[in-house]
Each structure stands twice: as structure tokens, then as C-alpha cells.
């Protein structure tokens, strides 16, 4: 078997994510205009006038809005993925490794969360909290962990019976050592894959919450722009297309980088390449 190489695609994806990171940190300083200010006529077309990406329904500069939106979207994408991954892996690992009644209890809890329609549940949570970026992240996290828990559980159950894990048990290793050092590194690959897909879901959920007016109204995000642009899709396509493309590219880049990272962490592929 030969390992995948770090090619042009992986480098481009990495550079794109690096650019987004810079924009997320320094975005508000770099924008040509204040994203909340009307700086031109409404619905100016992109690539024609002084506003590169055109203007929106209120005549705000689309480019500035996009740049400022990076921070919120990236923050939601990162945190609302990291939190449920950690929670899901923890619950799945306990259930899968310990088995028995603990497994029963944790899995019934997981199913309880899965049976509630996740979007409605997220909306209820946001409505109960103060509308802010943090409550949005908390709500998305609360509804996204169950699939991770189920995946982690099945991985842990399969790996628990493997011979190297049994050897570690006989050697007298603690449960924490076995879960953390022996099983987890081998269980990670599918979790990394599901994680890179969850980033997209988080960004879109945030936009849906924003669309219903339950998000932070003072926060510019790609989701906010996308939902604002949807209403005028036929007359001003760019209002929805630019944030949509931005989300797609980000998710794609995260997927590519996630895959490459996964390969780089796998000693079998690493040596095959060398």
C-alpha cells in the first residue's frame, strides 16, 4: 500500500484555512467598510462597481460583510464541533469499554436525545437562553453529540476485544491507560471523518437559527448572510451564492486537511510514504 502524498490540493486547502484564520482574527480591521453601514445603492451587482462583491438589500458592502462573518462562522464551526466530539467520545468510550448496565444507561440517554428532532430542540434551547453566539454554540453542541457517541461506542466495543487491548489488560494497565493510550488512537480515524462533516452542519445550523431571528442579531455570520440573501435569490443571486460558496469551500478544505491529518497520524501510511 502506498500512502497518499501531500499534493497541491492539500496545500491549497491548508492555505485557504490559514487565510480564514487570519481573517477571523484581523477581519474587522481589514474590511474596506463597516459591514453595518450603507455605503452604496441596494443590490449593486458584483464585479462591476467599486464594491467587489456588490451590495445587499440595505446597500451594505458584501465583501466587508463576508470578511467580518468569518469569525462567527469559524468559531461556531470549530467549537460546536469540538464540544460534541469530546462529549460524544467520552460517553461512547465509557459505554463501549465498560459495557453492561453503564452501556445500557448511556445508550438509552443517547437515544432519548436522538428521538427529539434536533433542530427543534436546538431552537428551544436557544430560546430559553439569552440569544448570543455562546448559547447558539451550546445549543448546537447539545444536539450533535449523539451520533458521535454511537460511533465511538461501536469502535470501542470492537477494539475492546482486540488482542493488543487484552494484552494491556493482562499487563495490569489501568482502565484510563487502556482507553486513552491503547484504544483511542485506533478509534480516531472515523471520528475525524464525522468531525469534519459536523463543521458544515454546525455552520448551517447557526445560519438557520440566525434566519429565524433566534441568534444574536448583532452578529454578522455567513449563515446570517445566507439566510438574508435567500429571500432575494432570484433578483440578487450573489447575496446567497457568496456565503454559500464560502461555506462549501471551508467545509471542503476542512475535509481535505482532516483526511491528510488522519493519514499523517497513521504510522502505517507515514512509513509507507517515507
Amino acid at each position: 500500500m502506498t500512502g497518499r502524498r501531500i499534493g497541491a490540493v492539500e496545500i491549497a486547502a491548508g492555505l485557504f484555512l490559514a487565510l480564514l484564520l487570519v481573517l477571523a482574527i484581523a477581519g474587522p480591521v481589514l474590511t474596506p467598510h463597516d459591514p453595518w453601514d450603507s455605503v452604496g445603492a441596494p443590490f449593486e451587482k458584483p464585479f462591476q462597481g467599486e464594491h467587489l462583491l456588490g451590495t445587499d438589500v440595505l446597500g451594505r458592502d458584501m465583501l466587508s460583510e463576508m470578511i467580518v462573518g468569518v469569525r462567527a462562522s469559524l468559531l461556531v464551526g470549530a467549537l460546536a464541533t469540538a464540544v460534541p466530539i469530546c462529549l460524544g467520545v467520552l460517553i461512547g468510550a465509557l459505554a463501549g469499554y465498560l459495557g453492561g448496565w453503564i452501556d445500557m444507561l448511556l445508550m438509552r440517554l443517547t437515544e432519548f436525545f436522538q428521538t427529539i428532532p434536533s433542530f427543534l430542540f436546538a431552537l428551544i434551547l436557544v430560546a430559553v437562553f439569552e440569544p448570543s453566539l455562546w448559547s447558539t454554540i451550546a445549543a448546537i453542541s447539545a444536539v450533535s453529540w449523539p451520533p458521535v457517541a454511537r460511533l465511538a461506542r461501536s469502535e470501542f466495543m470492537a477494539l475492546r476485544g482486540r488482542e493488543f487491548v487484552e494484552a494491556a489488560r493482562i499487563a495490569g494497565h489501568s482502565g484510563v491507560h487502556i482507553v486513552w493510550r491503547e484504544i483511542l488512537p485506533n478509534a480516531l480515524p472515523p471520528i475525524v471523518v464525522i468531525g469534519s462533516l459536523m463543521v458544515a452542519n454546525a455552520i448551517l445550523l447557526e445560519s438557520a437559527i440566525g434566519f429565524l431571528g433566534l441568534g444574536d442579531p448583532n452578529l454578522m455570520s455567513w449563515g446570517y448572510l445566507l439566510s438574508g440573501g435567500r429571500t432575494s435569490l432570484r433578483s440578487a443571486w450573489w447575496l446567497a451564492v457568496f456565503p454559500g460558496v464560502a461555506i462549501t469551500l471551508t467545509v471542503l478544505a476542512i475535509n481535505i486537511v482532516g483526511d491528510a491529518l488522519n493519514d499523517a497520524l497513521d504510522p502505517r501510511l507515514r512509513r509507507a510514504r517515507a
Binding site: 488482542e163 494484552a167 493482562i170 488512537p185 485506533n186 502505517r268
Partner: peptide
């Protein structure tokens, strides 16, 4: 007592 397993491919952790 320690154990030596049948499958030499499965008895060592591939990631360590």
C-alpha cells in the same frame, strides 16, 4: 501470568 496470542498482527497496538 502473561499471554502470547495467536495472531502476531493483532496483538501489538498499530498506533504505538
Amino acid at each position: 501470568p502473561q499471554m502470547v496470542f495467536q495472531d502476531p498482527y493483532g496483538s501489538l497496538n498499530p498506533r504505538r
